[in-house]
């Protein structure tokens, strides 16, 4: 009955060290995007959770995906949460999420008049928010980290990157990718658009 066939996952691009975004401005921007009917999903809400510590701050809630200004883990970034109707295979599901995430980041920077370099080019957090399909255990890591690596390879122009399991045992299965020699964020955004 539930959407178990499609992957539910979350990808987050953090801001560069010291970077900040005003959640109020981001919320206004999300509202404006809805007015402009320019969201690539059925956009429904803008939820404001600025009062919560180290969590989602503002969400553009859609039917299948949410775009989130997110401070989980204490680090601000932009996250894309795929809730339903995702691809059944992990690599295309991750590619779809990355396309939406980096596209959203570029658009947000432009809307706010901020430089795209606000977003870190060589860092990415991933969470598979489906404990049935991806329990947070070593077996999942062994099974899925190679797939995640394969999904991320085109993002950084073939440059080497580390991919490590991340997050506590009780959290959804997660991974952190770091590319020390990542190309400029504009190139990453362009690469994501081609995925």
């Amino acid at each position: 009955m539930s959407q178990a066939l499609g992957w539910k996952l979350r990808v987050k691009v953090p801001l560069t060290a010291g970077g900040e975004l005003d959640a109020h401005e981001v919320g206004d921007t999300f509202h404006r995007w809805i007015q402009q009917r320019s969201v690539d999903d059925v956009a429904i809400y803008v939820s404001d959770y600025r009062h919560v510590a180290n969590g989602p701050e503002v969400l553009l809630v859609g039917h299948a995906t949410d775009l989130v200004l997110d401070r989980a883990g204490g680090r601000l970034g932009l996250a894309l949460q795929r809730k339903r109707d995702g691809a059944a295979e992990l690599v295309p599901a991750v590619h779809d999420a990355l396309r939406r995430l980096y596209g959203g980041a570029a658009r947000l920077a432009e809307s706010l008049g901020k430089p795209l370099t606000l977003f870190a080019s060589g860092e990415l957090e991933l969470r598979l928010t489906d404990r049935l399909r991806a329990p947070n255990d070593p077996a999942t890591a062994e099974r899925l980290l190679p797939e995640l690596r394969r999904a991320l390879e085109p993002l950084w122009a073939g440059r080497s990157f580390s991919l490590e399991r991340a997050g506590g045992d009780a959290e959804p299965f997660g991974a952190r990718a770091t590319c020390a020699a990542a190309p400029a964020i504009a190139e990453v955004v362009a690469a994501a658009a081609r995925l």
Binding site: K8, I44, Y45, S47, Y49, P56, K83, T129, P172
Partner: peptide, 22 residues
């Protein structure tokens, strides 16, 4: 975090609510 938006909400009648659930 799997079906909602990562937020739990406690109500004035001691319930817990999750929003944006399909």
């Amino acid at each position: 975090e799997e079906y909602s938006d990562g937020i739990l909400h406690v109500t004035t009648r001691q319930d817990v609510q999750l929003h944006h659930v399909h």
